[in-house]
Every structure is written in C-alpha cells, then in structure tokens.
Design a binder for these strands. Sequence first.
DNA 1: ATATATGCGCAATTGTGCTT
DNA 2: AAGCACAATTGCGCATATAT
Length: 218
Amino acid sequence: MTTKTYGQYCGVARALELVGERWALLIIRDLLVGPKRYTDLRAGLPKIPTNVLATRLKELERAGIVVRRIQPRPSGAIVYELTEYGADLDEVVLAMGRWGARSLGELRPDEIITPDILVMALRSTFQPGNRKAKYELRFGEIVVHAVVDGDSLEVAPGPLPKADLVVEAFAPLSPLLSGELDAKQALANGIVRTDGSIAALTRFATHFHIAPHPAPER
DNA sequence: ATATATGCGCAATTGTGCTT
DNA sequence: AAGCACAATTGCGCATATAT
C-alpha cells in the first residue's frame, strides 16, 4: 500500500489505494458483520498468511478504517472494529457482492463458506418489499438468521428459534435466487430442504435475489 | 495493432520462533 | 493460547522484447 499508488486524482484510484490490496476487502467484509479478534479473523480467512493479516490491519488502522480496541475488564482482549469511516464501505461491499454473485457458478472444492459470508450474501441480495418474515438459513454447521420487515432487514449469525421458515441448503442457493431454478425444482433437486411450503420458499427466493448470470456478449 | 514470450523484482506465502 | 515478526522460498505482476 505504501509503494502502490496509481498516480490518478480519482476517487476509484484512491479507494483502491486504501482497500484494494489483497485480502483487505475480505477483512473489511468480516468486520462489517461485527468486531473481531485477531484469531476470529484468521478463522474466517484461513488462507490469509498471518503476517499479511497483521500488515493489512495496520494499514487499515493507519488509514482510519479500522481501530484496535481493548475490550473491557474480564477478557481484556484486543478487538478490531471498523470506524464510522470504515463502516461507510458497507454499501460498497454489498454492491460488489451483488455484482460478483452473478458469476459465482458452482461451489469449487477448495472454496469455503463462513457465517460472515452468508450474512453478507443475504444482505447483498435483499429485495425490499412489504412482507414480514423470519428466516433461519442453515448450510452444514453454519446457521444464520434474517428478519425481514418491509424495507428493513436484520441478518446475524446464529439460529432463530421463532423463525417462520427454516431453509437448509445442501448446495449453493444461487440457482434458486437467480431464478434459474424455481422453488419446486430446488426442492426436487435436493439442493434445499425446508420446514414449510413451496410458496414459503418462493417467498424466500423473492426476498433474496441474484441477477441472472451474464450472457456472453456478441 | 494485437497477441505471445521472457526475464526480473517485489509481494505473497511458508515455516518457524519470539513475546506477552 | 494470542498476536504477531522474521528469513527463505514461491509465485505473480510488470515491463520489455518478439511474433502475428
């Protein structure tokens, strides 16, 4: 980040100088879900070398995007959290995720899914409406929940005992959320199972939508 | 002009070990 | 255990050269 400047008086270039370094935006993605300790970040980003994580955190701290905070009494642990300035990246990261989701394709063998990934996936695909709903989404061991109320959405890791629909995914839901498969097909294919009706899963798929895969241009 | 090949420097990674 | 730092190695991006 110190040597890497684009020499352009441009907001995009400046943004890339600040958060365009390898891993930086993924660290920010996880911190957007909530403050985390060094080891929590490592757990969510298992492929990041430890010194790169340390370097990025320092760079982001220096840029005023992240702050190091010492937790109150009992734990006394160091947590990293976004500043208000850093949290302004929320809409940016969500927009990037929304754009990138169209090209997700199949889940590759070396790819993992974490709770933070699922939280941001739901937030980025959310379609405001006037429906109320409480969802619990499971993917293997990972459980997150979403509370939808019209235009507002609240997503967080963990279960939701009072959910009115539990969606258990056995494969990525991108085909369902992009409309490539409808709810009935997704259930029949075994990529998803629910404790509710087909209509309820359809409603889920309209609450969280991914644009269709880009067609190759001529 | 555009595509491909080559060599180099630096950043990223790996592995290890220090400090608290 | 958490939170790094450092040395050796690997890999990648970049510039330049060469081919189409």
